[in-house]
Nucleic acid binder design. Structure first.
Lengths: 335, 335
DNA sequence: TTGTAGGCGTTATCAT
DNA sequence: ATGATAACGCCTACAA
């Protein structure tokens, strides 16, 4: 039986409201009584019950964070940013792992509202129409992460994936690569990775190269998966001179497949990634990739949520963080 | 203004107790009334408020999970197991990231109790004495993960780290390695990694090799860190013929440092890891490592917590899962 | 400045 | 089988 505000009140010889006032400093209390109450709190080790508090305040000090894969290192680093900023403001994290499944995402979104979370940070691979609808009219602060939403009415924090992919593809082309493969996520219009695809396309078009759909493959962001995709390239003898993987992990999967099949990187094939996770600059060959301020993406998203909770006006609801093309060892000029 | 049980009762023309009974099937309700209530619930989209429920039931359907580093892939996979099993039983996760800091760990533990979590899954690098005390007398179900506690009064789920490290070291020695370095976590007695150290020591002793403390280094489980440690070996010209890193990530950091300095793996130096994360079998050279059933560790821990919550008797409170020595490319017989 | 009392949404214990 | 009603622990008008 844990100690309650009532016990404190009794022990201090004051009313419940008074105790409430000193713990919340919501209204003035004579410093004499305050001291007395504080002392009792100290002695008894009393802690206000957050659940009861949530019930009456309709707040929970909880932020719901829904992600498609906790074991993805990119997501893990974003979570670090979210957690750390959240902690600064006294918010805790209710974690939801969806595996990118729409039903799960919807289920969790409902659950989170029921649990009175004060804000939601959302990340997914495929932003289905249903989700967009839901997120556009939800009545609690939401931030979409890693996805630009300038065309939607949902706040978001991400880099400019389109521009970044464009730069990367352009870089490869200007290094003499005429056959550039792209490994991105699934085909759907609303899938994360569409921006990358469009950036890739733009670069190709600008350089008068036609898009060979045979070279655009759809992965699931896993190492193992891109390994298999590259194996297909090899088996089908359509191996390009450069492979642009939409994540570093997929790039590494690709490189290993190439190595296992007797190809050299970057001598035979250039392989570039996206995200710049820590492994990218340690892996051998070091990955040419797009640097994202991963931690910051999470941090900024959380800060945005906190601001909204506090009713502070936030200027732009679509925040685009800077990215950078990191040219390292896994790509080569073949001109 | 969300709809409450009261609204449903009124709309269905029954008492709130009746509504409560149909949503919980706690007591018989005439099927006629049940249908009526169900219909109103359907129409109104009523969802019981979990917070109010928590308050009266003193339960929250929440499991607190505290980990030292979310972005660590090993931990990420454990979280997958925890989450998935938790979801099966209707439990959600309150995630706490501590960076392994004792103050944070203690703070979170208190917070979790206050939030009425029904169970706690705990993981840390250093199991400080204070934590042991706290965990031994906490009044809610706890499971320590990735750490054998046969000498403590805390339930746990892990592999036999001692035996695994022993096998690995023995394997290296029997492959002709007389100078085997160990990169493990910090020096403290209670640090995770002590079991590995002891296993390592036993193997050396059994083979009449003396322990050269110069070859035992203390890392922080990060890639970058073990890279630096190996650099020290090289600079100090005490490079051994084999390096046993206490995690795959550290092994990869070690290998990359060797490669960057002109050494070949495993020709010049054998490097082995621990955990068998996915990357281990994709990385080149494939890592010789200890396979842990990572996902299962999380899953079993969660199942254990659920059982305890339900008051089911669980046999052994210290669960040891099987491990396996995976011999791959990063190690070599030099006899 | 302090205390009283009502209410937050549910569950559970009584009667009926 | 059903319905009042008292908790659960806390906050907050409203009174004093």
């Amino acid at each position: 039986m844990s100690i309650t505000i009532k016990d404190v009140a009794k022990k201090a010889g004051v009313s419940i409201s008074t105790v409430s006032r000193v713990i919340n400093s919501s209204k003035p209390v004579s410093s004499e009584i305050r001291q007395k109450v504080l002392k009792v709190i100290e002695e008894t080790g009393y802690r206000p019950n957050p659940v009861a508090r949530s019930l009456v305040m309709k707040k929970s000090q909880l932020i719901g964070v829904v992600v498609p894969d906790i074991s993805n290192v990119f997501i893990g680093e974003i979570l670090n940013g979210i957690e750390e900023i959240g902690k600064m403001y006294g918010y805790d994290i209710l974690l939801c792992n969806t595996y990118g499944d729409l039903e799960e995402e919807l289920r969790y979104l409902n659950l989170l509202r029921a649990k009175q979370v004060e804000g939601i940070i959302f990340m997914t691979w495929k932003l289905e129409e249903k989700l967009v609808e839901y997120l556009e009219k939800i009545d609690i602060p939401v931030a979409l992460v890693n996805r630009n939403t300038s065309n939607l009415h949902i706040p978001s924090v991400s880099i400019d994936n389109f521009e970044a992919a464009y730069e990367m593809t352009k870089f490869l082309i200007e290094n003499g690569h005429k056959k550039v493969a792209l490994i991105r996520s699934s085909l759907d219009q609303n899938a994360f990775g569409l921006d990358q695809y469009n950036g890739y396309k733009k670069a190709l078009e600008e350089h008068g190269l036609e898009i060979n759909e045979e070279l655009v493959k759809y992965g699931n962001w896993k190492l193992e998966n891109s390994y298999e995709i590259v194996k297909e390239f090899i088996d089908e003898k359509v191996l390009p001179t450069a492979i642009f993987a939409a994540s570093d992990e997929m790039a590494i999967g690709a490189i290993n497949c190439l190595l296992d099949n007797g190809y050299k990187v970057p001598e035979d094939v250039s392989v570039v990634g996206f995200n710049d996770i820590k492994l990218a600059s340690i892996y051998r060959p070091n990955l040419t990739t797009i640097h994202q301020p991963i931690y910051d993406i999470g941090a900024v998203a959380m800060r945005m949520i906190v601001k909204k909770i506090n009713g502070e006006e936030i200027g732009n609801h679509v925040i685009t963080l800077p990215h950078e093309l990191m040219i390292r060892e896994s790509s080569k000029n073949i001109e």
